[in-house]
Nucleic acid binder design. Structure first.
Length: 271
DNA sequence: ATGACTGCCTCTGGCAGA
């Protein structure tokens, strides 16, 4: 009975933080609203809202209790941070290190004492080429900025679509994306360097054997065949890693009508 | 199998995604 009470206490105090590449916030609004209402994360980071700032459905979100900040761009990219019953305090809009970078891929806020970043790291295809160079340069800038957050010694969650398959255990067939920017040694090295600074890959820690997917292509029957891979990640500072108690993928939402090609990924931390 | 899908604006085709 004592264990049961402790688990209940743990559950009640847990804070759920999620990340979801929604592939178009306007086209996906019904799916987004039902996911929020069903899983009720305290914080949700969104990527690929594919919406300009004035097209973001803030009122529909507010109607179900979520306050949002967002960094939009016409047609592509775009990130947002949603909080349940709280207004995210915006800390940074855009990743530092390149004043000429106009792509909307980074947003950072403080919510209830936790620093949260919504990250949409460049895809980088085709490689080699300028898009791949942009990806690697963006990755290097992210590492520098992450180190500055680390130095603040506050609880940090870096959440988003990193467009990196970290290891062969994170994809249904190791050679399936052999020529793709998501699996290149340069991409995986950049990821490994970031983790080498001390960040905890939450889902990898909870599921060390791999086999967890967060993306299934719309094409080639990838979803019914479970041909997926893991590219959506939550990286935790030590203050958050010590509080990590659960995490996973809301896989069922990938199978719904007009779903995103990504599934939501979440963690829970003790409060 | 040289394929397959989806959302967006540049809008009935092209681009980007991964």
């Amino acid at each position: 009975m004592r264990v049961r009470l402790e688990l209940r206490h743990l559950s009640a105090a847990a804070v759920r933080i999620a990340t979801f590449n929604i592939n178009g916030v306007k086209a996906r609004l019904p799916r987004l609203l039902e996911w929020l209402e069903e899983t009720r994360p305290a914080v949700a980071c969104l990527q690929e809202i594919k919406s300009q700032d004035d097209g973001f459905p803030a009122k529909a979100l507010q109607a179900i209790g979520y306050h949002a900040i967002w960094h939009g761009q016409k047609g592509f990219n775009g990130v947002a941070i949603l909080a349940d019953g709280a207004v995210p305090r915006e800390v940074r809009r855009g990743l530092p290190g390149d004043p000429d970078d106009a792509q909307a891929r980074y947003l950072e806020a403080e919510v209830n004492g936790v620093r949260v970043a919504s990250i949409y790291l460049p895809n980088g295809n085709p490689q080699p080429g300028p898009k791949f160079e942009y990806k690697l340069a963006w990755f290097a800038r992210l590492r520098v900025h992450a180190a500055s957050l680390w130095a603040e010694e506050v609880p940090v969650v870096l959440a988003g679509d990193f467009n990196v398959v970290p290891t062969d255990a994170d994809i249904w067939a190791a050679d399936a994306l052999a020529e793709d920017a998501l699996t290149q040694p340069e991409s995986r090295d950049a990821w490994a360097r970031l983790l080498g600074d001390g960040w905890t890959d939450a889902v990898a820690t909870l599921h060390p054997r791999g086999g967890v997917w967060t993306f299934w292509d719309y094409q080639a029957g990838a979803w019914p065949r479970d041909h997926g891979f893991r590219i959506d990640h939550l990286l935790l500072s030590p203050e958050c890693a010590d509080r990590l108690c659960a995490g996973g993928v809301d896989k069922g939402h990938r199978g719904r009508e007009r779903a995103s090609d990504h599934a939501p990924v979440w963690i829970e931390m003790t409060g």
